[in-house]
Design a protein around this nucleic acid. Structure first.
Lengths: 206, 206
DNA sequence: AACCTGAATTGAACTTAACTCAGGTTGATC
DNA sequence: GATCAACCTGAGTTAAGTTCAATTCAGGTT
């Protein structure tokens, strides 16, 4: 469980700007479709300057994914921390999952679209470090949901079922939205949130 | 609704062999991670021969995705065609979705991991044709599930809800499995199928 | 003010893998 | 056995990510 130390920002560091620009580009156009040099342009630096902050285009992507996973976990914890009733905790967790900014929507989309990157190992050390950290966070998030179900089953609020599998399914259902949802689309996020919240409760508690 | 005419196989065509090899490679190692030349090697031809059958590596990927979507739709239709009861039809459809060979598992994984390709348009004509065909098939499959729900709601078997959204959710839940499932993993597909079948019914019919 | 240090940046060169092209081989059909 | 289309290849091109040696810049030291 090696945690990655976030490189502290020097006063003229462009790391944050690069990450923001990359999220926009990767999120809108897709990782493969966006040229690394375009990100540099948008930040206002030459393409080679990117390598001062990230070892590679993929290293940047993995960083975005890790940060998003960390955020998801934190929000889950925050949303459920003082709710004893399992059903209410579940509802709160789902609502928290969809209580996101447009920028965070892009981050979720990027994360979902590149989960497969976390399987195979990477050549370079820094990339591999990010990958492993992200993979661990995936497991942490899965455990978040599974534990919630286990707790509910133990209290008799949820019927007994394979909590691991059901947890993965609930999570899968929730994040599947990020593959098709567009802020500009016809369905408002609030409506989606409500429907999924109900669906999750029925799935788990019926 | 332009349907793509499958190039009929000349007696010494290696198209099918290429597709099979590509599914193995793309499915196991990932599309980006596998070199196009590796696929050629595995088939036993030079890399340039690939371009006799596919305009590009991406064209091959899009073809795989379209074929898989066509298969999914066909299986759905076959599984539900003579089941009047909506709940039973839903159960049959879910079971059909998981009644797949290991090779088809790879195809589903490839499809799910590259859905984002279907958003943006492609440069070349043949690629774009495959993309559009695939995109249409996605909508067809979504309609398959939505119609099933609409039918069930009309008959009073399912409570009234946004069928479009709920259909997308059910589908999202079902296919989310292909991101993590491995035939070599600890959970047998039959067990997954059963749990998801139940989850879908509760989600829709409770 | 002159100097030093390390972070930040750059242009030019390199690498890799997808792709193009100009032509060669094979085999079914007449 | 001539023909034609399908099929295949080696050599060369291109595009995008990446490396590297050299340079600029900002802030602190003497």
């Amino acid at each position: 469980m090696t945690k990655i130390v976030e490189p502290e920002a020097g006063p003229r560091s462009k790391r944050a700007a690069i990450l923001a620009a990359a999220v926009d580009c990767f999120g809108e156009a897709g990782f493969e479709a966006t040229k690394w040099s375009t990100v540099a342009e948008r930040v206002g630096i030459g393409q080679t300057a990117l390598y001062h902050y990230f070892e590679s285009k993929t290293h940047c992507l993995l960083t975005i994914m890790r940060l998003e996973l960390q955020r998801s976990h934190d929000r889950f914890a925050e949303a459920t921390k003082d709710t004893a009733d399992p059903v209410e905790a579940l509802r709160a967790a789902v609502r928290a999952a969809y209580d996101v900014s447009p920028h965070e929507v892009l981050q979720m989309r990027i994360l979902q679209n590149h989960m497969d990157l976390l399987s195979g190992s990477r050549r370079s050390a820094r990339e591999e470090a990010e990958r492993v950290a992200a993979r661990q966070l995936v497991q942490v998030v899965e455990r978040d949901w599974t534990n919630l179900l286990v707790r509910g089953m133990a209290q008799g609020a949820f019927p007994l079922r394979d909590a691991q599998l059901l947890g993965a399914s609930v999570l899968g259902l929730i994040v599947s939205v990020w593959r098709w949802y567009r802020p500009s689309g016809p369905t408002p996020l609030a409506e989606i949130s409500e429907l999924i919240e109900g669906a999750c409760v029925r799935m788990v508690a019926s």
